Simulated assay, not measured.
Amino acid sequence: MQVFTDLDQVPDGFGPSAVTIGNFDGVHRGHQAVLGRLVHLARADGLAAVAVTFDPHPAVVHRPESAPELLTGLADRLDLLAATGLDAVLVIPYSLAFAAQDPEAFVTRYLTAGLGARSVVVGHDVRFGRDNSGTLATMVELGGEHGFEVVAIDDVGECLAESAGARQRWSSSAARALLAEGDVAQAADVLGRAHRVRGTVVHGDARGRELGFPTANLGGIAGMVPADGVYAGWLRRPALAESDPGHPDVRLPAAISIGTNPTFDGVERRVEAYVLDRTDLDLYDEEVVLELVEHLRATLRFDGIEPLVRQMHDDVARARAILG
């Protein structure tokens, strides 16, 4: 998949293309259905399948004080978009100046002149251009003027968010609500995959190593961190996967702890992963991805080292059973 972060990077004569537009935070199952429809239409008509997305998220620019925590950082969003079969993604740097464009200026600059759009796939609730003044009707009208057809699609699917007690759409907000409660298994039903966080392994207190459970502590985290607790999951190593895809250490089973280490009066919230049965790994300064599969227990304060270590052994055994 080609990634363009500026219109100047799009080759001359690119296209013709089928294009869709969205933030695609989390690239959840609803997004995947839309993108799958786009790819199918593009292949049938001999077009390039292209998604237009934004970085940063528009909410961060317009209302930073109340912007939602993003499910995925840009690197993971692009990985997940690539997995849908897209040919290209245009990442538009979002700013107030960009948002001030009228709907026709956006369409002509980015969709038709920039990407050679012949088909535009959008939801019935699409909004674009200054003050979100562009609607589906606007897009259809502009399509007639500028030579592209508009394919409007309905919302796709729903999930049961048990905490809310009601059925909801597959949506980024539904996934956020579930992750905020630590329900990574139900969030995976919305996302169509295990939720992931990405970061670089940094030096911690080395307390885990002293207890016989050396952990990889993450810094510079991208992706929403779920509720405090202990989780079963996987530690994935993107750089190793790229250099040696068949290496057995590309994806490793792990017990993952999120919280402040209350047994040791910790105050800093941390994300750390113990790779099951491995004490030989040197992951410092390596970027890793944690995939959270199931919540094991809440974060607890223990009365001493011995009960903590007993619980850690139990956590590891449960994680091993869950991950197979």
Rank of each mutant, 00 (worst) to 15 (best):
V151R: 11
P58G: 06
A241Y: 05
T84A: 01
M1S: 15
Y284N: 03
Y284D: 00
A105V: 12
G223W: 03
L136Q: 11
G259N: 13
G123A: 03
T279D: 06
A82F: 01
P262Y: 08
A99E: 05
A321L: 12
H62W: 14
G304N: 05
Q32Y: 14
L235K: 13
F213D: 00
S133I: 11
S173W: 01
G144T: 01
P253W: 11
T112K: 02
E287Q: 09
R297F: 04
A33W: 14
T299E: 15
P307E: 02
G143H: 12
A321Y: 06
S173K: 09
L96Q: 10
D45Q: 15
P56W: 10
T215Y: 03
A100H: 12
Y94E: 03
A206K: 12
T215K: 10
V288H: 05
F213Y: 14
R310D: 12
V89R: 09
C159G: 04
T5E: 15
G129E: 04
Y284G: 01
V60I: 13
D79H: 11
A100E: 07
R196H: 02
Q186Y: 00
G15N: 11
D87G: 08
R193P: 01
G73D: 01
M224K: 12
A273M: 09
V288M: 00
D315I: 09
P64D: 02
P226D: 00
A33G: 15
V225F: 12
Q101V: 07
P64C: 07
D265C: 09
A321F: 00
G13S: 05
A82M: 03
T135M: 05
G212S: 12
F106S: 03
A239D: 09
E291L: 08
H40N: 13
G266T: 02
A321R: 15
H31W: 14
G220W: 11
R207S: 01
H31I: 08
R193N: 07
L179H: 10
T260D: 04
V316D: 04
T260E: 07
H62I: 13
G246M: 05
I322A: 07
E158V: 12
R169G: 06
P68V: 02
R43C: 04
A227V: 01
T20C: 13
A152N: 03
L323K: 08
D183T: 00
D183A: 11
D131I: 09
A187S: 06
V120L: 01
H62R: 14
V3W: 05
N261G: 06
D228G: 11
G22L: 07
A88D: 00
R29C: 14
G199Y: 05
A185G: 08
V184K: 09
H195R: 00
S171D: 03
V309R: 13
V60W: 09
T299K: 08
A33D: 09
G259Q: 04
A51S: 05
F14H: 10
A174W: 05
H31C: 13
L292F: 01
E272C: 08
V225W: 10
L7R: 14
V52G: 14
L300Q: 06
D155A: 15
R193M: 00
L142H: 10
T5K: 15
A97G: 09
A48V: 07
L81F: 07
A216K: 03
D102Q: 08
D265K: 13
